[in-house]
């Protein structure tokens, strides 16, 4: 985990074995819950929103971004990634299966704007593959820290 006074809490896990997409969302959020950046209910809210609206969090082939609202239990601006050992199906008609599950939380409606902008830029320039190729957690955290 890396953290600075002003910056987001950033963490990652690699080689994750998730039974299904719900497990993958929990895995992505888990380090942020442990760090005290998200309340334990946050991943449940991400899952509930997807159950209500469909797999909104699947952004591109193989890549999902789990997120919910600030009032769903966000304590600190935060970003994490779970790289899955085995891809899972989210039920998306074009982008399944998914093996990189990102998660972020924002404590208000504006705190995450720069973070998301940087995340989008980094995803356009190969962040997901950097995470997939990361041999260990530290390498993945460093790759993700470049965003925050």
């Amino acid at each position: 985990m890396t953290e600075s006074a002003a910056g987001p809490v950033v963490d990652a896990v690699v080689g994750v074995r998730a039974a299904d997409w719900r497990g993958a969302v929990h895995a992505a959020c888990a380090p942020l819950v442990s760090a005290g950046a998200l309340e334990p209910r946050y991943p449940e809210r991400c899952i509930a929103i997807a159950e209500e609206h469909g797999p909104y969090m699947v952004l591109a082939p193989g890549i999902a971004l789990a997120h919910a609202r600030p009032d769903d239990g966000v304590l600190r601006l935060c970003l994490s990634a779970a790289v899955l050992a085995t891809p899972v199906e989210f039920g998306h008609d074009q982008n399944d299966p998914v093996d990189v599950v990102l998660a972020f939380g924002s404590p208000d409606d504006g705190a995450h704007l720069a973070l998301l902008q940087n995340l989008a830029e980094h995803l356009l320039t190969g962040l997901a593959d950097q995470l997939r190729l990361a041999p260990d957690r530290g390498t993945a955290v460093r790759a993700l820290s470049a965003v925050g």
């Binding site: 929103i49 609206h53 909104y56 971004l65 997120h67 919910a68 409606d109």
Partner: peptide, 15 residues
């Protein structure tokens, strides 16, 4: 537009 209005829709806005 996205389900939450925080993440996917924001990336879509930038794109």
């Amino acid at each position: 537009v996205c389900g939450v209005g925080m993440g996917s829709s924001l990336i879509l806005k930038m794109n």
